[in-house]
């Protein structure tokens, strides 16, 4: 199967407007076919990239980092002091996660990540960004009214808690270290990792015991 087919069939549920989606899909298909025909793009390289993000890279990688930080306080300190090196200890670096900053949510500070300029995101750690993260609405509203945005995600931040919005304007990428929920003292690192959702690592959710592990909604 060529990359051509992968793209043509890419995630129809990711858009609420099927006309727009099919326009884009058609355009991508046409450009891709041209690039391959002219020898500018090697379909094998495209397949490698698509397969990586479809089957290997995703939020489960970030969840491993978070769970380790929850159980290993020395790792957590290294992670917050130098995210790049601490994540490299686990061998989890990769494209668009070369320079990592990890920010910790606490009872006093809530961190939220955005990229107002485009959609910069730690791909090797969280996979490809969700559609909402790339939307104009999120990118503009996250900086001007983060509390309202968080409320729409179901998260009410008390007025005495500082909301910090991190705009990914350089080549550094951000990961939120969520608070470890109460009642998880007896869980293993692997069990903890299953609770950590993608949205929690962007700062758009908290981790709780009722979290559905296979968060797939876009």
């Amino acid at each position: 199967m060529t990359a051509y087919h992968h793209h043509a069939g890419s995630d129809p549920k990711s858009s609420s407007d099927s006309n727009i989606a099919s326009d884009i899909a058609l355009r991508v298909k046409a450009i891709e076919a041209l690039l391959i025909e002219k020898g500018i793009v090697d379909p094998a390289a495209l397949d490698t990239i698509i397969e990586t993000y479809e089957t290997k890279v995703g939020p489960h990688i970030g969840a491993r980092i978070v769970a380790k930080a929850w159980v290993d306080s020395e790792f957590k300190q290294r992670l917050l002091a130098d995210g790049t090196s601490a994540i490299a200890e686990l061998g989890l670096t990769g494209f668009s996660s070369e320079h990592m900053i990890v920010v910790e949510n606490t009872s006093e500070i809530h961190n939220l990540i955005v990229c107002t300029l485009c959609s910069c995101y730690p791909w090797a750690i969280l996979g490809l960004p969700p559609t909402w993260y790339k939307s104009f609405a999120y990118r503009s509203r996250a900086v001007i009214e983060p509390r309202v945005v968080l409320k729409e995600f179901g998260l009410e931040i008390p007025e005495n808690v500082e909301v910090r919005v991190w705009d990914s304007t350089s080549d550094l990428r951000y990961l939120v270290l969520p608070e470890r929920p109460e009642g998880t003292e007896g869980l293993s690192e692997e069990e903890l990792a299953k609770l950590v959702t993608r949205n929690a690592m962007i700062g758009a959710a908290k981790v709780d015991l009722t979290t559905v592990p296979s968060e797939v909604s876009q």
Partner: peptide, 19 residues
């Protein structure tokens, strides 16, 4: 030059250093 599958793999695994 056209990017090979090997080159794509290397970039995905190792990233691109901007520092």
């Amino acid at each position: 030059e056209c990017m090979s599958a090997e080159a794509a793999r290397a970039i995905l695994d190792n990233g691109l250093n901007c520092r």
